[in-house]
Design a protein around this nucleic acid. Structure first.
Length: 268
DNA sequence: ATGTCAGCCGGAGGCTGA
């Protein structure tokens, strides 16, 4: 059994105590991290390596940044999403993981652009939103290529998409939000319609399951959340899916990330 | 409580992104 989790940590340095305690308690075989906000040179790889994890990073100063932590042997395949050589934002890393039974599972850690405009910018079709949509188009194209390999793969991360209104505590307040707009949801459906399986939704179909709660306005204590973190499985990975869920524990701790981990278990 | 957090620059606190 291989346990894979995704977690937007909102700065690996600020979150290191939370990440270390979670790795010790939850014991994922593979952890896909986002928003590490650290260049590779200053990523706390030694502290995490001491817990038995291989650490692979695609980092950037201040913003973004993704990583894969793996107790199992790992080989990096990509440190950027194909399709635009001018894109310098660190939002994708992909690797092959060798499972205990000798199989291979391909994993990707995804930090999909948020797409909402900057403060004081009323242009909801801003450059940021166009970047989000073009990034999703690239993800769809790359996923088509991955499906041709017939590998078992898991694309996990912060998709910055609320798939439907059941994933939003206050849908009326989010109709114009880039996380909920029809263009975003439509592209997410295109991605799923390639034949992917949303691990969590294979076991839990109810609305009101969240992976993110804003730091503001007491969102956590009121359970005013969003479901924006997902583990998407190829057909070959979905064949082996044993269980999936959300680990809300880290969100309730001191100095938490605003996201909490989403996990799945594969019989690989 | 109209109630946040993190990083950057620069050496405080305003700005940005989320």
């Amino acid at each position: 059994m291989v346990k894979i989790a995704t977690w937007n940590v909102n700065s690996i340095k600020a979150r290191l105590p939370r990440v270390i305690e979670w790795l010790k308690e939850f014991q994922p075989d593979v952890a896909l991290l986002q928003e590490t906000k650290s260049v590779d040179e200053t990523f706390p790889a030694l502290e995490i390596g001491d817990l038995g994890y291989n650490v692979e990073i695609s980092g950037q100063k201040t913003y973004n940044g993704v990583a894969i932590l793996s107790k199992l042997p790992i080989d990096v395949e990509l440190t950027a999403l194909p399709g635009d050589d001018t894109d310098e934002q660190a939002r994708y890393i992909e690797a092959l993981v060798t499972t205990p039974s000798g199989g291979v599972v391909r994993v990707g850690s995804i930090y999909l652009p948020n797409g909402n405009p900057t403060r004081d910018d009323n242009d909801k079709d801003s450059e940021k939103f166009r970047y989000k949509l073009s990034w999703m188009d690239r993800l769809i194209a790359h996923t088509k290529d991955l499906l041709k390999t017939e590998d078992a793969f898991v694309l996990g991360g912060d998709y910055n998409i609320c798939v439907n209104d059941g994933d939003v505590y206050n849908p009326a307040g989010f109709v114009d939000d880039a996380l909920c707009r029809p263009e975003s949801r439509g592209r997410f459906r295109q991605l799923m319609n390639l034949g992917l399986t949303n691990a969590l939704r294979s076991f839990h179909s109810n609305p009101g399951l969240y992976s993110y709660w804003d730091y503001q306005r007491g969102a956590w204590s009121k359970d005013n959340g969003l479901l924006i973190d997902h583990l998407l499985l190829s057909p070959q990975a979905a064949d082996t899916l044993l269980n999936a869920g959300i680990d809300k524990t880290p969100r309730g701790k001191e100095k938490p990330s605003d996201h909490t981990p989403v996990w799945c278990e594969l019989d690989l």
